[in-house]
Design a protein around this nucleic acid. Sequence first.
DNA 1: CACCATTTAAAACAAACGTTTAATTGTCGC
DNA 2: GCGACAATTAAACGTTTGTTTTAAATGGTG
Lengths: 210, 210
Amino acid sequence: MSQTDTVSRILDAAEVLFAERGFTETSLRTITSTAGVNLAAVNYHFGSKKELIQAVFERFLTPFTRALEEELNRRIAEGVPLGVQELIECLYRVGLGSLGLEGKDPQRFMRLLGLAYTQFQGHLRRFIVSRYGDTYRRFAGLLAEALPGLDPETFYWRLYFMLGATIFTLSSHDAIEAILREDFGTRSSLPETLERLVPAASAMLKVDSH
Amino acid sequence: MSQTDTVSRILDAAEVLFAERGFTETSLRTITSTAGVNLAAVNYHFGSKKELIQAVFERFLTPFTRALEEELNRRIAEGVPLGVQELIECLYRVGLGSLGLEGKDPQRFMRLLGLAYTQFQGHLRRFIVSRYGDTYRRFAGLLAEALPGLDPETFYWRLYFMLGATIFTLSSHDAIEAILREDFGTRSSLPETLERLVPAASAMLKVDSH
DNA sequence: CACCATTTAAAACAAACGTTTAATTGTCGC
DNA sequence: GCGACAATTAAACGTTTGTTTTAAATGGTG
């Protein structure tokens, strides 16, 4: 078994298990036995559990961030100014695209993102901000440009409202979908939920509160 | 030290520590030493850690739910039909009021609510739904009445969007506030944040997506 | 073939965890 | 004051955790 094999097998197993149970609730022994590798392999390749957690996030956030940057460049090169709804659609579409490749489940990454914000892993938040903060600030800047006249403080609070609605909803998507399916008998896929989320989030950003 | 003393000292300590670090990351030893009681007191009075977690939630959710029910009764007795914005305002104001009594920090309860949804404590979610589900459904029903013409599925999804925006934002209120204070030099209190959240959440519920 | 990184196996490590036990203390009704 | 029961205490229980260490085996590269 080659190195890349062992490393990615560990990452695959950790990704799934972390998303299902959280970081503290997932032991290295569960990860390594799921991955079919030796227990010591984690500390050999990653150094520690903390660094393994960061590596899991790096593996999906780096392609996502790159894809978002490229999509923003492409849209800006067209010369058409980007509206609020278009920017949010862009964000979601890149997420569905870059995270849904290779049979990966986009919701799993949403669960992980949710964990990064709600579990108490200070090192992880610091890692994400330092690594991907620039792209986040660029996106926030474009969104602010599309909302002229809105005072910056209100804008940023609403940005967090939107972040909360997105992460919370999508990371619990399966659970919510199960409840609604029971009540209404209908199914709704992740793209359908995003179609509902885009206008709702846009309305929240654009509303005139006075 | 009387029984009520020990019990409420444990609940006080657990409430703060759970909100700060989460359930798994808070040990019974930390709780009992913070509370100044013996380690075995938790299992003696509550039975297990799971039941302690439930007791923490029961202590603040029961008065909150009762206060919300009473406020809804009061408003309905007035005969004036309740609008979307009024209902959301009502919810937040009751939260600020009933949870902010006795020097308690409303944000702490928001953090706990966030944990209840994002951490993996199946027993806790079941406990909350079975105990407080009726009031939740009553509030949702009133809100749906205030939004005639909106198809039920879209309504419920937006309800979750609102729940996410509220819980996510308020449970991270201190962290977000610190970031914005650094960027803008201004402060914003929890009531001020709620004043921003009410119109944003209302707009999200009311928007016509067609 | 020799080298070196990789992987495995097995074991041990100290630390932390939730829980239980048995003995002691405190308190209240009689 | 005494018996009964609730409450508190110190100590130990058995697991599980992340991590490290030893050794041997494996595999590809120069």
